[in-house]
């Protein structure tokens, strides 16, 4: 591990100041990825800025019809949150499938994004939920759709001096969302592939109005697959239609061979996972929820 200074600022302004003063900084949220990179000497920061003191960025709120997550909210908190279990159970499910209890206790939703692993479990669900992220710096606060955050493995559009502060998504009454993960074990497994789908229906006619299908570990970043979405929009739900959409997704994706799996296997299981994700999303949309 290289030598660095450690800071634990108490407010965002202090964070901005430290980022400006230390050009070789690394931000520390939960540390579950950062500590591994430090140990392997993959990064050599001159300063580590621990964000744990930013209490305002921890927590889950319902504000004007949107769920707002502080970027430092842990996976454990997401998994156990009443609000998340009520309005976005797929997100609670994904958070509960990350790593292990120890990792979930430390790892945060913002950190999971900032680390920009294509296999991140919370990311496809949040993309399917249409999440937006707020990026803050001393100069500006900007809001972008989550899928626009990522440039490639480990790379985001975050500029020097900028950090993810909140993540939010709209709560919709006639929407269902799902999460499906395939790992090599039930626990402590990085996803070989993961998938999430959201379906929004016209309440009277039950026609599918809006669809988002997002997959992880099939490209350099988590991706939305519009080829599958287009099959469903404007139609009634049926198992044949789901099958067709899943096939289209499998055809459209271009996964690679890597340490965890092969491209051909990923294409085949993507079809199965997307099918299950759409079924699960449909079962969510058809069960009545409060709110």
């Amino acid at each position: 591990m290289s030598k660095f200074e450690y800071y634990r600022p108490k407010c965002l302004n202090e964070v901005f100041k430290l980022m400006a003063e230390n050009h070789g900084y690394s931000l520390l949220a939960g540390g579950t990825d950062l500590m591994v990179k430090l140990k392997e000497n993959l990064i050599k920061p001159t300063a580590v800025i621990d964000l744990d003191g930013l209490e305002g960025l921890k927590g889950i709120n319902l504000e004007a019809g949107r769920i707002v997550l502080g970027a430092l909210t842990t996976h454990t908190r997401l998994e156990q949150s009443e609000l998340i279990n009520r309005f976005a159970p797929a997100l609670a499910k994904a958070a509960g499938l990350v790593g292990s209890p120890q990792i979930r206790n430390k790892g945060t939703v913002g950190g999971n994004m900032g680390n920009a692993s294509p296999a991140a479990d919370t990311v496809p669900v949040l993309i399917a939920l249409g999440a937006e992220v707020v990026l803050s710096s001393k100069e500006e606060i900007r809001t972008i759709p989550l899928e626009e955050l990522f440039l490639g493995p480990g790379r985001t559009v975050l500029k020097p001096g900028e950090l993810i502060t909140t993540i939010s998504f709209e709560v919709l009454n006639h929407q269902g969302c799902s999460f499906q993960k395939l790992g090599k074990r039930k626990a402590l497994a990085i996803s070989v592939i993961n998938a999430s789908a959201s379906l929004e229906i016209e309440p009277e006619t039950k026609v599918i109005k809006k669809v988002r299908i997002a997959l992880g570990s099939v490209a350099a970043t988590a991706v939305r697959v519009s080829a599958g979405e287009e099959i469903l929009i404007g139609n009634y739900y049926s198992s044949e239609l789901i099958k067709k959409a899943a096939e289209e997704v499998s055809k459209a994706i271009r996964p690679i061979d890597d340490v965890r799996s092969t491209a051909i296997y990923r294409k085949r299981v993507a079809e199965v996972l997307v099918g299950r994700a759409l079924e699960e999303a449909w079962s969510q949309v058809t069960c009545t929820r409060g709110g």
Partner: peptide, 9 residues
């Protein structure tokens, strides 16, 4: 995991 925590934390 105490291997993923810095002592100053």
């Amino acid at each position: 995991n105490s291997c993923l925590v810095l002592a100053p934390q």
